[in-house]
């Protein structure tokens, strides 16, 4: 699919403007409580810097939009095109879901080592590795190296997960 690069830029600015405005008018007031009677003489309010940065970002975006699309509206006609592949998009979405599942759920539940074994095997298979021996031994070899270097070498204990210690306590 081919999209107009200029249209893409214009949409991006508008989306970022929306995010910036919600940051200024919703996120900051909701998440920062300034102490009472606090001001310049006390070294400024905690919300001062976030507001300042937020307004800087807002003015940068507005300036860019006005400069490119209001003062120079013909710019879109001469813009180059940009290709976009739906196939790549769906592929990357699947990979991101696998990564987030691994980091948010799998490690916490079954522990780092087991989760990583499953993750490497699954992702390598998804990326085109079909040799069973490699799919079986490569993750084991890698996790052994990680185990030896982290747990034995550096005394850093990676997460055990919730299920594994419970199973071990039963047996």
């Amino acid at each position: 699919m081919i999209i107009n690069k200029n249209f893409h830029e214009k949409t991006l600015i508008l989306i970022l403007l929306g995010i910036t405005l919600s940051f200024i008018f919703w996120i900051i007031p909701e998440s920062i409580e300034d102490p009472e009677n606090f001001g310049l003489q006390d070294g400024l309010n905690p919300s001062f810097a976030p507001y300042l940065i937020g307004f800087f970002a807002f003015f940068t975006l507005v300036f860019e939009y006005v400069k490119n699309y209001i003062l120079n509206p013909k710019i879109g006609l001469t813009s180059e095109k940009k290709s976009f592949s739906k196939e790549v998009f769906y592929r990357i979405i699947k990979i991101i879901i696998v990564c987030l599942f691994y980091s948010f759920f799998l490690i916490e539940t079954i522990g780092f080592y087991l989760a990583s074994l499953i993750f490497i095997t699954l992702l390598s298979f998804f990326l085109g590795e079909k040799r069973v021996l490699i799919l079986f031994f490569f993750p084991i070899l890698l996790m052994s190296i990680v185990f030896v270097s982290f747990e034995i070498g550096f005394n850093i204990f990676l997460p055990e997960g919730i299920i594994l210690p419970q199973l071990l306590s039963i047996f």
Partner: peptide
């Protein structure tokens, strides 16, 4: 690449966890 990148992701996760011992850092 199909083996290297999953390996990089896992080692990066372990490295991120190591500093503060926090699962949140992996996320």
């Amino acid at each position: 690449k199909r083996l290297l990148f999953p390996a990089v992701l896992v080692i990066a996760s372990a490295g991120a966890y190591a500093l503060r011992g926090s699962l949140f850092d992996i996320q």
